[in-house]
Design a binder for these strands. Structure first.
Lengths: 163, 163
DNA sequence: TATTGTTATACTCTATAACTATA
DNA sequence: TATAGTTATAGAGTATAACAATA
């Protein structure tokens, strides 16, 4: 039984320095890392990681991408993507085919099983989001999203939502 | 010159999947990790890490903490805190004194130099925050803070701002 | 020679587990 | 025996660099 228990702790939980709690970047960093870790745990229970979800989601939007493009778009290293695709291919969720016009390139595409797995991933993410944002109502979530998106898009073009 | 350059890129930057960009938890995770990495870089240039700032900020609020209390409050492992305090003590920013009533305990307190370093850390964090939240005005930053705090406090008592 | 995908290597961070000295 | 602090060890995750095939 530790201090994070739901029961009233014998010793009151010490608060973080006000200075930190008042800082937007501190909260952003802490929450961001926390949500990432929770996501990793959730995906791991199904034998995957969050990156696998990103790859499948990207492939569904624009089929037949080369590995280089997938890696650059998602912001993962090309060498890292190899292992992710191996994992997905072994489970029959994606297919790799050499581009006949340039046999260095691999054209990656989603299989039917890949689409079904993507649906499962979406359910997982919805659950995670509902749990993590539990104290916020719909309006607040929309506001939070708007502010985060504005911040992200300012730093990185890839976040700009095109019409 | 890479694709993240400010110039108009020859090849248009591929967008992330809309599905991801529309997810609050995805943005939160990405931005959180990004701001953490930027903070680490900034602190590193002064020969420290973000944790050192947390320790100094905590010590200023409530002096003469034991190491266990500091570690639990900040959420770092006790064994990790040892190295952080070594680093700070070598530079004369904190002092460790054995508690005469229980010689297992170390009482840690801030020195005058520690206070001055804390002031420098604060300037660094203000700069980081201004840079990271550049696209948001004062009202938006306040709203973002409110929403993040509400989310964090719901998950972890240590974030509850006491009057 | 440059590029695509791949493999191998190294390094950082963290989590865990032993160890000491005190209680 | 249990606790506070310390040290040592091992693992995951990531970044870097070498490599093979093709252009």
């Amino acid at each position: 039984m530790n201090a994070t228990s739901l029961e009233t702790p014998a010793v009151p939980v010490e608060c973080l320095p006000r200075e930190l709690v008042k800082s937007v970047v501190f909260l952003l960093g802490r929450l961001g890392v926390a949500v990432k870790m929770e996501a990793i745990e959730e995906f791991e229970q199904e034998g995957f990681g969050p990156w696998h979800y990103g790859v499948l989601a990207l492939l569904e939007e624009g089929a037949r991408q080369t590995q280089g493009k997938i890696a650059d778009t998602l912001g993962v290293d090309r060498s890292q993507l190899v292992g992710l695709l191996d994992h997905l291919e072994e489970r029959g969720l994606v297919e790799r085919r050499r581009d006949p016009n340039d046999r260095r390139r691999q054209m990656v595409s989603l299989t039917a099983a890949g689409h079904r797995q993507l649906a499962r991933f979406r359910k997982l993410v919805r659950r995670l989001e509902d749990e993590f944002l539990a104290p916020l109502n719909e309006d607040e979530r929309a506001t939070l999203h708007k502010l985060l998106l504005k911040t992200a898009a300012h730093r990185d073009q890839r976040y700009v939502l095109t019409a």
